Simulated assay, not measured.
Amino acid sequence: MDALWDKLGAGPGRAAEDIQRLKADDLPLVLYGDGWYAPYLREYLGRRGLTAAAVFTDAGFTTSGQAVSFAEVNGRFEKFNIVIAFANAPLAREKLARLDRARVGGVYFFDVMGELLGNTFDRAWFETNKARFGAAYDLLADSLSRETFLAFLDAKLGGNAEALADISRKEQYFPKGIIQLSDSEVFVDGGAYTGDTLLTFMRLTGGKCARACAFEPETANAAKLAATVAARGLRGVTVHNKGLWSAPATLPFAVWHGTSASAVSGAGEVSVEADTVDRLAPDATFIKLDVEGAELEALKGAAATIKRNRPKLAVCVYHRPGDLFELPLFIKSLVPEYRFYLRQHQPVACETVLYAVI
């Protein structure tokens, strides 16, 4: 195990090296892709003094309205570098391999999600916390979980940015073989947004459950969620325009701006109300948490419920540097019998979910 951690901690800083190479080449930088990932990549590159000279997509697909065809890019520049601007880099490379790349200097990819979500750490921090990372790793119940753990860390440390794509899986929050649903669930959806996870839960259960509590602190999202629940006639669903925390509180809250997600923050421009699972859903049998870095506080506010009910847990572990070890170790301290699984649900370092089941 020590050799494994040493190898990970001493791996190449590939991302930093690639940035230096792009600057040294002094070639026009062209983005391939213009979907949800592109704005994050543009900001990441901009922070490093790099801007795109053009963007091309497949069959003219564009969200910014700036994309052109590869043929147009190829005719515009004598030589250029490509930076992949959608999350699934292996798929992008497959598509690029079919093109005439005689004028392409190089093809690059960066996993930018950690930095733009405020979750970054360096090798010194990793070394300081290596024992706790190791303790969390040892809790994982299967080989895919352990592979995911290592690939996530490697991506965070600027190593192989594309390894997560190979282990990414669908079925977020409800992976087959891990989460088994009954028709008597009391479902807590922490960070419910406008209802995507809640609707999936209802579809998978056929609408049969004891009840569901959806927590969404952002007022506009909570209103849309409540409207969806009413329009679809979902029974037994309560929408709380609140966040989840370790105790009832009024918290500063930063609203979504550009590539920054809404979250509890000392720099927040508004205030939101928060409460606990222990107070509002003490009978919970399944708790999902995607609360933008407040997962540990939300778990503390659900501690009595977790100890008593031992509910299924699906907890995001990608928002803060210590989440990957702090959250499983805290849950383990509450219920030692839990089995832990880690799954990656995007090809980049976000939507990484820890599952705890009995």
Rank of each mutant, 00 (worst) to 15 (best):
A356T: 01
G106M: 11
D34Q: 10
V270N: 05
L329K: 00
A85T: 07
E216Y: 07
K176L: 12
L99G: 06
L4P: 00
Q344D: 10
Y44T: 01
F109C: 02
S64M: 09
D2E: 14
K130C: 03
L157T: 02
A267S: 14
T57E: 08
G190T: 05
H257D: 11
F253Q: 06
S168V: 08
Y108C: 13
V270A: 13
A314K: 03
I178H: 01
Q66T: 05
H257S: 13
A267V: 03
G33R: 01
R169K: 08
A3D: 10
A226C: 00
F340Q: 00
R21I: 00
V30L: 13
A52S: 08
A38C: 09
T352H: 13
F201C: 03
M202C: 14
R21T: 10
A303S: 15
G60K: 10
R339T: 06
A53G: 07
K300H: 09
F110M: 00
L45M: 15
L234D: 00
Y40S: 05
D275I: 09
A97P: 05
G35C: 05
A281E: 06
V112W: 00
F77H: 02
W125M: 06
G114N: 06
S246M: 08
D58M: 13
T51V: 12
L327G: 07
I306N: 06
L199W: 04
E218G: 00
L153T: 02
K307Y: 05
D290H: 14
D275Y: 06
R14F: 02
D2V: 10
L199K: 11
N160Y: 03
F149E: 08
V55N: 10
L244G: 03
K224G: 08
L327W: 07
L354Q: 03
L140T: 03
L29I: 15
L327N: 07
E269R: 06
P90A: 10
A87F: 06
G46S: 11
A85W: 05
F187L: 07
D275H: 04
V335W: 09
D154H: 07
L280T: 11
G236Y: 05
L342N: 05
V112P: 01
G159L: 08
T120S: 15
K312D: 01
D323E: 10
S333V: 11
F86Y: 15
S265D: 12
R235V: 09
R232I: 01
G49Q: 11
V188L: 04
A281P: 10
N81S: 15
A254R: 14
P252L: 12
G206H: 07
R14N: 13
G207Y: 13
V255H: 01
A71K: 15
K176Q: 14
Q346R: 15
V83W: 07
L244E: 03
R343F: 02
A87R: 14
Y108T: 11
V186G: 00
A92Y: 14
Y355Q: 04
I178K: 01
A92Q: 12
D58Q: 14
D34F: 12
A10P: 00
P90W: 07
A24D: 08
L27F: 13
P252T: 12
A71Q: 15
L204N: 03
L280R: 13
V55C: 15
V317I: 15
M202N: 11
L354T: 03
T238E: 11
M1W: 09
T128Q: 14
V291G: 02
F152D: 02
V188D: 04
